[in-house]
Amino acid sequence: MSLQGKVALVTGGGTGIGKGVVAALARAGAQIAIAAVDFVDSSANQYGTKHIGGYMAAQKLAGELQAQGVEVIVIDANITKTADMDQAVRTTVERFGKLDILVNVAGLITCKQVVDLTEDDWDSVVDTNAKGTFVANKAVLPQMKKQGGGRIINFTSIAGKTGYPGLAHYCASKFAVIGFTNALAKELVKDNITVNAVAPGIVATEMWVNLRKAWALPGETEEESYKRCVTSMIPQGVDQTPEDMAKAVLFFIDNPCVTGQTLNVDGGCS
């Protein structure tokens, strides 16, 4: 499909799934704004530090794409902060003249039993994944309504449909994304704005660096832990890739009659 003349804003677009989405949008001809941050408010995340390096990674990716002739900018914006995301939309429109697509990928995870969860653990993950989805989605609506339409694609997870031990706070945040996506889609059916979500299975991103450590059995290496999780949780027996997720994003962009849906890209596990 061709996205020539289309403008996309991608949150968390410098690494992992977001990087794969940005690459796919670029190949399709879109102009792209990447919203990312180097620092977050809490170290309760998969990186174990407040310095997550997202903005720096996005700048590196943007440089590579610009060298290929892609029109792409990077915006320092935290999806949990309304002022940041409102400014990200303004900057995108000032640079490219419009905004057609939001792909909301940014997210955080930690792995702890509920009895051990702190309020900081909960707030860091739920604020980013659930509140961040609300903030980012709301920020683009005035511009999309003004233009007469748009596409919003949020990222949830298989953990947004099934609970997993040690991930109660993450599951809560990703269940919330599915409900929010479906409700917002119904609010916007008369505005030519579709709202859908992608639910990845197991993708070898930084999140799974964290999980393979947390879920390793006694005497098991991290790589063995990861392979066991893939083979036991994914019926196809293989993990998924950022490119797989990007294909789902392109499907939603290309289908004006599909809205309010969550598409599992998970090898059959849900």
Results as ranks from 00 to 15, higher is better:
Ile234Tyr: 00
Lys138Met: 01
Ala216Ile: 06
Gln261Ala: 15
Asp84Lys: 01
Ala185Asp: 11
Gly160Asp: 05
Pro200Phe: 05
Val238Ile: 15
Ala168Gly: 08
Arg27Lys: 15
Leu9Asp: 10
Pro142Ile: 01
Leu102Thr: 03
Ser43Arg: 02
Thr194Glu: 08
Gly5Asp: 15
Phe251Lys: 01
Trp215Ser: 05
Cys171Ala: 15
Phe134Gly: 02
Ala44Met: 13
Gly260Arg: 08
Gly179Tyr: 03
Gly12Thr: 10
Ser124Trp: 08
Asp38Gly: 04
Pro242Lys: 04
Lys98Cys: 05
Leu65Glu: 03
Ser42Met: 06
Ser124Glu: 01
Leu99Val: 00
Gly149Phe: 05
Leu211Pro: 07
Gly267Lys: 10
Ala106Ser: 11
Leu184Lys: 04
Gly97Ser: 12
Leu9Gly: 09
Gly163Ile: 15
Pro235Tyr: 08
Val198Cys: 06
Tyr47Lys: 10
Pro165His: 12
Val258Trp: 13
Pro235Asn: 09
Lys190Gly: 07
Met245Ser: 07
Ile17Asp: 00
Gly14Gln: 00
Tyr164Val: 12
Gly260Phe: 03
Gly237Trp: 12
Ile32Asn: 08
Ile79His: 12
Val115Phe: 01
Val258Arg: 02
Gln261Met: 15
Ile178Tyr: 07
Ile193Gly: 01
Leu9Thr: 13
Ala214Glu: 10
Glu119Tyr: 13
Gly237Pro: 01
Gln240Tyr: 05
Gly18His: 12
Arg212Asn: 11
Gly237Glu: 09
Asp76Gln: 14
Tyr170Asn: 00
Lys145Gln: 14
Val125Arg: 11
Arg212His: 11
Cys171Gly: 06
Tyr55Gly: 03
Ile158Leu: 11
Asn45Pro: 03
Ala159Lys: 02
Lys146Pro: 07
Gly163Asn: 13
Ala176Ile: 02
Ser2Ile: 10
